[in-house]
């Protein structure tokens, strides 16, 4: 194939100045931010040395206090289950009341604000506040995760309701059905499966978070983990981490099975 080199077809590609500027800005930003945060290669290398020592102390994991570990894991699971049950229970009405296609705006407005508030704060912030309010122990963890659940399920459930078809609603309203019947027969059937989906996802998420709330004293295995850290008890720490990962993987496995049941 011979090309007609006499012709000038111009550049083969449009230069995408936005993309180039974006890459440049990205690199400049990374350099600036690393400098701002005092993230340097020397510190990183020094950290790697510490990390190696740290890992060496973690091996072999020390499972000798397995009874404490098991009791903590059970408490963690209990927190997750109770919080999920109440969180799911409360997010059902909250989600309904926040749906703009069902309720007037003076009702949806405060509930939407409440959901946004529950979502915006990381659970650990709630945990701190509840520990101050109700003292150390699993109760603070349960309350924390109830609020986190309302934030997550409430938002998705509201969005699901706002996407439903309004025709069955009109039919029932036209037939003179009372408000609760409209909700039960026209709204819930359309969104129940998705609600169950969100709920099983949140059960999983609550279990992950309940391993952490103990760090600030809200019950579960996190407290023991934090204590192990502070005592430099790194081989026990390794045992705790392994059991947390095992617990989370187990719950992921169970929730995939549950999802299959509801598909």
């Amino acid at each position: 194939m011979t090309a007609d080199t006499a012709k000038n077809f111009g550049p083969a590609f449009k230069t995408n100045w936005w993309a180039r500027a974006g890459w440049l800005a990205g690199f400049l930003y990374a350099a600036y931010a690393a400098n701002y945060l005092d993230v340097s290669w020397a510190r990183f290398l020094q950290g790697l040395g510490n990390g190696a020592a740290f890992l060496a102390e973690m091996v072999p994991p020390n499972f000798s206090r397995w009874e404490l570990l098991a009791a903590n894991l059970i408490e963690t699971v209990e927190i997750a289950i109770i919080a999920s049950a109440f969180g799911i229970l409360f997010s059902l009405p909250v989600g309904l009341l926040a749906a703009r296609n069902l309720m007037p705006s003076w009702i949806t407005w405060p509930f939407r604000a409440f959901i946004a508030l529950c979502r915006s704060f990381h659970p650990v912030i709630f945990a701190i506040l509840f520990v101050k309010a109700v003292g150390f122990g699993p109760l603070a963890g349960i309350l924390t995760l109830i609020f986190a659940s309302i934030g997550f399920i409430g938002k998705l459930f509201t969005e699901a309701i706002e996407e439903i078809s309004l025709k069955p609603l009109e039919a029932l309203r036209a037939a003179g059905a009372p408000f609760m019947s409209v909700i039960i027969y026209a709204v819930l059937p359309q969104v129940l499966n998705r609600f169950i989906g969100f709920s099983s996802y949140q059960l999983d998420a609550n279990l992950r978070n309940s391993t952490m709330v103990g760090i600030v004293g809200a019950g579960g295995i996190g407290g023991t983990l934090f204590a192990a850290f502070q005592r430099f008890d790194y081989d026990f720490l390794a045992a705790i981490l392994i059991s947390i990962i095992a617990l989370v993987m187990l719950s992921e496995f169970i929730s995939t099975r549950i999802k299959r049941v509801f598909q």
Partner: peptide, 29 residues
Amino acid sequence: LVSSRSVNSLVWALLFVAVFGPGPLAGTV
């Protein structure tokens, strides 16, 4: 991937504070 997701961010933070010392480097990693 599973290990990264299973360990909560606060626990990761504890680990990296132990490795890099307190401060934003530990937070970033």
